[in-house]
């Protein structure tokens, strides 16, 4: 053991190598899980089934990556590790939109909405609301608690409003609403999928480019300004990125409140670091493993009888509680 300690002290970054190996392993597992999802149990018209699965996989990967990336950025900016952007009331807002739409248009009218219009309208609305919520409070980091509280209150308000409108809805149409209330990966519009994939890819690339800046932001406002960062400009840009990623993925598949929290907590535990060069890819990889893996398991093991998003949310909720209880400092 003394020899090992000596070696650690002598070389510059022995931990980097270990962390890099961990990230590579996570990515390898994620790739393997994707392959299992695509190729295991292929029957019938192989080309058709493969095409279907490919588009499902694209949706899953995109949602997984954007949940992971947006949560990492959000947590770093807010300096808080038990929050994710979707806990901030965005999912509740989405639900409220759906409820109002079903109420106003009826079940058939809702189903007949052109998907591209509905999609872009929802993205625009959610980006507008989240920026209106986040941006004015970013002058200083100390206002973060106010922002978080506002998020919770807004979430509560949207939920209560949804509940109110839901009582007014015809019971048959309520079933339509129920279907829209949970994330679903079964029926994704391919055009929207392509748009979403582009947004997610660009957003992830931007986050990756900003990884060193994110490391500095994690030190807090004073240290970051001391090191020459334009705090307000960077935080505004990064929060816009978060809003864009969350809005796109929520509009695509529906709300997934705890997925981001779950995978970032797992990735941080596995990686043992908060360095964004490692954490970003690790969290994205873990998210793919969890989401695609759960979907594959549900199809192979349970014959599609299990709603994956419900399971993921259940486990994510448990992790959230565990984080709350285990960490006295956030």
């Amino acid at each position: 053991m003394p020899g090992r300690v000596m070696a650690e002290a002598a070389t510059a970054s022995p931990h980097r190598a270990a962390e890099r190996r961990t990230v590579l392993a996570i990515c390898a597992i994620a790739t393997a899980v994707c392959a299992v999802f695509l190729f295991v149990g292929l029957r019938g018209n192989v080309a058709f089934v493969l095409g279907l699965r490919l588009s499902q996989l694209l949706g899953l990967v995109q949602v997984a990556v954007s949940a992971a990336v947006s949560t990492v950025i959000f947590q770093t900016i807010t300096g808080n590790r038990i929050l994710s952007p979707s806990i901030m009331g965005l999912d509740a807002l989405y639900l409220f939109c759906q409820t109002v739409l079903v109420f106003a248009l009826g079940g058939f009218g809702y189903a007949a909405l052109p998907p591209a219009w509905k999609f872009s309208g929802e993205v625009a609305l959610m980006m507008a609301i989240s920026l209106a919520l986040f941006l004015p409070m970013l002058r200083r980091r100390s206002d973060m608690m106010l922002m978080i509280l506002t998020g919770f209150v807004l979430g509560l308000m949207f939920r209560s409003l949804s509940a109110l409108v839901a009582r007014l809805i015809d019971p048959n149409e309520f079933a339509v609403l129920q279907g829209a209330s949970f994330a679903t990966f079964q029926s994704l519009d391919e055009g929207l999928l392509a748009i979403g994939a582009v947004v997610t890819a660009l957003g992830t690339a931007a986050a990756w480019r900003a990884r060193h800046v994110l490391d500095v932001i994690a030190l807090g406002r004073d240290a970051a300004v001391g090191l020459g960062l334009d705090w307000n400009r960077w935080v505004t840009a990064l929060l816009s990125l978060v809003a864009c990623l969350v809005a796109t993925s929520t509009a695509l598949v529906g709300p997934l409140a705890f997925l981001g929290l779950l995978v970032v907590a797992l990735a941080e535990r596995v990686c043992g670091t908060r360095g964004h060069g490692f954490l970003l890819p690790a969290a994205a990889g873990v998210a793919v493993i969890v989401l695609v893996g759960a979907q594959a398991l549900a199809r192979l093991g349970f014959g599609g009888a299990v709603v994956v998003s419900v399971v993921v949310e259940f486990v994510g909720g448990l992790v959230f509680l565990a984080l709350l209880f285990s960490r006295r400092h956030g």
């Binding site: 970054s13 931990h15 060193h212 994690a218 030190l219 090191l227 020459g228 941080e268 043992g272 670091t273």
Partner: peptide, 16 residues
């Protein structure tokens, strides 16, 4: 707040 090794922390001084 972030989990950083001392060497990484000191290395941030080189960020500018």
């Amino acid at each position: 707040s972030s989990r950083l090794r001392v060497r990484e922390l000191v290395g941030f001084g080189r960020f500018p």
